[in-house]
Write a protein that binds this DNA or RNA. Structure first.
Lengths: 200, 200
DNA sequence: CACTTGACTACACGATCGTGTAGTAGTTTG
DNA sequence: CAAACTACTACACGATCGTGTAGTCAAGTG
């Protein structure tokens, strides 16, 4: 989980600060001056290293995606696979996940591409576990969106359960609640069929 | 579902335009001049009617919440209750739901309060249907977040399934996919217990 | 008729933002 | 040693934004 060796440079600090602030306050809500101050450099250096705010965002997208895939790979290497693995997320990835979601909502192609790859992965995973929904693609998209939902609404969810879900304890709790959502069938397949006909 | 009679005034047009643009582009991403242009009035009139951008947002919050509860009430009145009712949403509420989520992410108290009320409703609903998760509050919070997730990520989900989910057809499809998520248990209660112990 | 009030517009203000320019200090390179 | 390059800062620029001010116009109201 350690960083590349040359990754404590000012350039890296700027990028890390940008990911954190973008994820926390949104892209528009974060100025280059804010990022520079958080990284302890001048605003001109941000421009020097990344050219423009848009380029900085693209660099953050690229880095966040790589780190995310890297962390995901380590996760599946270290642990035994469970049926819920596509929903697993390591705590160190929280800021990255937050940033990616923000970037998605602001229309980033890289972030959207990452979501689509996630949907692919969920679809493959479901098929390999013998889960056969009538709409495999829609099913996978719904599951992928669900995975992100508690992160997007982390402040609201935290407030609702009276516990900060960005702490390990809070994340465990909401993770287990999500498992219960998946463990308790709310509908029988027959009910789904019935509703399907109703809505057509 | 019709509007109040006196609701075609410039004030109402401004509010409607604000809700749509705020929901579409975010609060920071929408200027008062944008809203004024969309409503066909001068930017000064926006200020005249609402005082400030923050006041305008509060007015939008208040109105969106009222309309949402109103639409929800009509929905439960018109239709028979199904087990999935807390997840139901009428198409006319789409822009409202989008706005509310944006407002939530920008830290609105009114929008957050609406979410908390939604969690309460889901919790009551689950209890009345004999659904007994080990963490009822966390369970309700997770379900409430899930309800919103496909709206927040509507662009990504639409792209993933190749169909615009803000159309009735697309919304039906993703709604049915969500039902399948709830219909197919991914975990047995025993697996949940096992994972619970692992993570502690 | 004079007066007030509310809807509405035009325009100017300071602040902030992304960006551009110029320059310094230290290191590398031929 | 001189030239070139890189990391970095300071400062100024136009644009945009929220906001403030002044004024027009029409509809009441005494």
């Amino acid at each position: 989980m350690e960083r590349p060796a040359d990754d404590l440079t000012a350039r890296a600090r700027i990028r890390d600060a940008a990911i954190e602030l973008f994820g926390e306050r949104g892209i528009d809500g974060t100025s280059i001056r804010d990022i520079a101050a958080a990284a302890g450099v001048s605003s001109g250096l941000v421009r020097h290293h990344f050219g423009s705010k848009e380029s900085l965002r693209e660099a953050c997208d690229k880095y966040a995606k790589e780190r995310m895939l890297q962390i995901g790979a380590e996760l599946t290497q270290d642990h035994d696979l469970t049926r819920l693995d596509p929903l697993a997320l390591h705590p160190v990835a929280f800021p990255l996940q937050l940033y990616i979601v923000r970037s998605m909502m602001d229309g980033s192609e890289t972030a959207t591409a990452l979501f689509l790859e996630g949907v692919d992965a969920v679809e493959d995973w479901a098929a390999s576990y013998g889960i056969t929904p009538k709409d495999p693609r829609g099913y996978a998209a719904a599951l992928a969106a669900i995975k992100l939902s508690v992160f997007i609404l982390r402040d609201q969810v935290s407030k609702a359960i009276g516990e900060d879900i960005t702490t390990p304890a809070g994340y465990n709790r909401i993770g287990q609640a999500l498992m219960e959502v998946f463990a308790i069938p709310l509908l029988t397949p027959e009910q789904v069929d019935k509703l399907r006909k109703q809505e057509k």
